[in-house]
Design a binder for these strands. Structure first.
Lengths: 194, 194
DNA sequence: GACACCTACATACGTGGCGTATGTAATCGA
DNA sequence: TCGATTACATACGCCACGTATGTAGGTGTC
């Protein structure tokens, strides 16, 4: 009990973020009520407004947490591939797959941008785009890809991925569409190669 | 006064859609109040709920109107180019430019998908994607592009375009970013060419 | 180690806005 | 011409966000 105070605060924040993440991910930002997750967290609205200011503040905290997790996952994927190009392709595929997870899709690609504006702007470039950008930088240094602005390419891929994910997720036959989407995506990526 | 009734109805609907379009485009879906645009249209909430059911219904009507306009603009652009490939590239550029217009960006790319789900799904494929898809079909028939599923490509381009637009619109120096974005986008499109 | 202070959270309330239920006048079919 | 339907107005309930105020427990200072 070196820091019982700060410890409790961290726990409270974590509980609220977790509850918010559940609610936002399952029923969406607009439908989620403040009382929903304070109840789930065993707290009251006082704690929520004290720590996060308002509903948007909680959403932002949730997004930062998810972004950090996505970044780590992407880095792991690209690190465990035999070649850099393969790592990059795997990373893109992993990005699409993550965008298929309902929680990520809803919070990061639907409600997030709608409520807070363009996510990729409202702080420093978020980790998941930075990760793609970094991979492209290395490929460029190795001379494996054509001359293209890497941040732009990362954002192109980001945009394409998230839309592919939405398309797949909302399709009647997700598996069929998924094959088409991934195949087309790979073809597009090949166009970047020398 | 052949059909004074239906005429008046159409006028009422048009007034409400126009008012909704203004409000949604300027302050966004969540911040726009029903009373805002009924006031602007010189009507009451009764008319609104009668014709559109709820707030989402009005948004949907607004989106359909904008989509039709976008489709027409895109078709004009591609039709007035010297070659098909050039027409296609122009069409993509026009798409990005349209996505830069605040009203289109907000309604079609931010609030629309957030409120109604994936726009490209909740009816038949919307016109603006169909237009891109159609252009790609012709290019493919002419043997100008590589073998790729055209609908997938259209959606990739759609996703990439809208994200480029968001990036540009929210940047500190839109002009600089715009140049980078369009250049990168063209490079990516070249990858589709034979 | 006692005291004042501050911070983390709880409680209670006002308010705004969505949706609905009901009312009414004008138009359409017979 | 008369009943029925439709287009819209009016009035109300309710939910949920945010805020203002209260309180208890920890913290810095002497």
């Amino acid at each position: 009990m070196a820091r019982p105070r700060t410890e409790m605060i961290a726990k409270t924040r974590a509980k609220l973020i977790a509850a918010g993440r559940h609610a936002f991910g399952r029923i969406g930002y607009a439908e989620a009520s403040m009382d929903d997750f304070t109840g789930e967290a065993g707290l009251t609205r006082g704690a929520l407004y004290h720590h996060f200011g308002d509903k948007k503040g909680l959403l932002q905290a949730v997004i930062m947490e998810i972004d950090a997790e996505m970044t780590e996952r992407l880095n792991k994927v690209s690190a465990s591939a035999p070649t850099r190009w393969q790592g990059f392709v795997d990373e893109c595929a992993a990005y699409i797959e993550m965008a298929l997870e309902p929680e990520i899709q809803r919070i990061m690609f639907r409600d997030g941008p709608a409520v807070l504006g363009d996510i990729s702007q409202w702080q420093n470039t978020p980790g998941c785009i930075a990760a793609l950008s970094h991979s492209l930088d290395r490929l460029k240094a190795d001379g494996e890809i054509i001359d293209i602005d890497t941040e732009t390419a990362a954002r192109l891929i980001n945009g394409a991925s998230s839309h592919m994910a939405l398309w797949i997720a909302n399709a009647e036959k997700p598996e069929t569409v998924s094959k088409r989407a991934v195949a087309g995506f790979r073809t597009m990526l090949e166009g970047l190669r020398k």
